[in-house]
Simulated assay, not measured.
Amino acid sequence: MRVARVSALAVGLLILVLLLGFFLRTHLFAPAHVAAPDAPMMTRQNGSIVVRDGSPLQKRLVVTPVVSARDTTAMVLPAQVVPIPDHQVNVLAPATGRIMSVAVQLGQHVSRGQVLATIAASDLDQAWADDRRARAALDFAKRAYDRARGVLAAGGNAVKDLESARNDLAQAEAESQRTHQRLQVLGARSDYAAQGQVPLVSPVDGVVSTTNMAVGENITDSTAVQMTLLDLSSVWVAAAVPEDRTDDLAGNVTLDITFPAMPGRHCAGPMATLDPLVKPDTRRVNAYVVCPNSDGTLRPGLFASAKLNIPAEVSILVPKSALLMNNDQVSVFIETSPRVFQRRVVTIIYDEGDDVRVQSGLSAGERVVTSGAILLNDD
């Protein structure tokens, strides 16, 4: 009995030793587990940097396309409102004589065909008399021609008599046409003929800017200007450009106009024309822009300020955040294909603001790293 107990105890001790050995081998003396190293976030291949897909580096990079823009340079110039030349009309008296009435005054708006003044003109009386004689002669010549043609048809007249009557008719028609046109030139109207007067009529819609007429005054020179009318429905603004900047006026330039005396009033448009000569006193050339003036508030002589916008060449723009400085060189990283980047040396011009102009090294449409480029800069 005692031997059996000893045998059972020995077997138990053996089993315990075996279990303890297995535990020690498995947990204490087993070689430590070594984790597999992560793949690098970027590698170099043929001079380019390849960023691992899904890596933290890829998430830090912001890539945007290169944009191009047409820059403009601006000059602020002194300017002044002037009438458009073909909207300024000098009114002359159609005939010499005495001024009987003046129907308008300085600054008044007038309409086309409106009577400005009346003139008693002796030349007009002579013109009406010549016209009446010419009409009477024409009527007589027509009747003589009809009579000669009828007599010839009856066989009682020679052909030369009909030809003579036809010649007299042609001369009478020419004289009647001449006297009628003379009345038109003088501005004669039948409702003024009885008084021996000729009306001075406005040829355009406009404003009376100057007048030299007074009732009772004698007009002795038919070439003297009696009134000046301005059509101010639109005006020119003349911007004075320095002579050393006239070469910039080639091409499509625009003018932005403001008026210091009229806050809020603005006008803009392309340059309409340019003075052919430099003004000797200012050494400037006037560039003109047309401004609408339906309310008539833009009066000739009003001072203005003109900003002359001159188009420049198309520029490539990139954010300053894309630039990397390497000694004396400026470079950027461009994405040549998905997750593949290449350094590119560029020539730039610094501007105020967040962007710079690239003179060389980039083209519009290329994709540039605009944020996180410093993480690729491992040189």
Rank of each mutant, 00 (worst) to 15 (best):
Q108L: 00
L61P: 04
I84C: 12
G54H: 15
V115N: 04
T43A: 12
F29A: 04
L28K: 06
P37T: 03
A35H: 02
V102A: 06
A74V: 11
M42P: 07
V102G: 04
A120H: 04
T26A: 13
P37E: 14
A95I: 01
P40L: 09
V63T: 07
G113K: 06
M42K: 14
R112M: 05
R52S: 15
V66F: 04
S55W: 15
V89R: 10
G113L: 03
T43S: 14
S122R: 10
D123L: 00
M100I: 09
D71C: 00
P94K: 05
I49L: 15
L77Q: 04
W128R: 02
V104C: 05
S55A: 15
M75T: 03
R44E: 14
R25N: 14
I84N: 14
A79G: 14
K59D: 11
M42L: 13
V67W: 01
P40H: 11
V91Q: 09
Q105R: 11
H87S: 12
M75D: 05
H87G: 07
R52A: 15
Q108I: 04
T72M: 02
A120I: 00
S48P: 00
A36D: 09
V66Q: 00
Q58L: 11
A121E: 00
M42Y: 12
D53Y: 15
S122W: 02
G113Q: 10
P85V: 03
P65K: 01
L106Y: 11
D125W: 08
D86M: 05
L57M: 13
Q45G: 00
P56Q: 09
M75Y: 15
L106G: 06
H109D: 03
R60C: 01
I49A: 05
D71N: 09
P31V: 05
V82W: 13
R44H: 11
D123H: 02
T118S: 14
T64F: 02
L116W: 07
L77S: 03
T64Q: 09
M41Y: 08
A79E: 07
A121V: 00
V104P: 04
A117H: 07
A127Q: 02
L57S: 11
L124Y: 14
V82L: 10
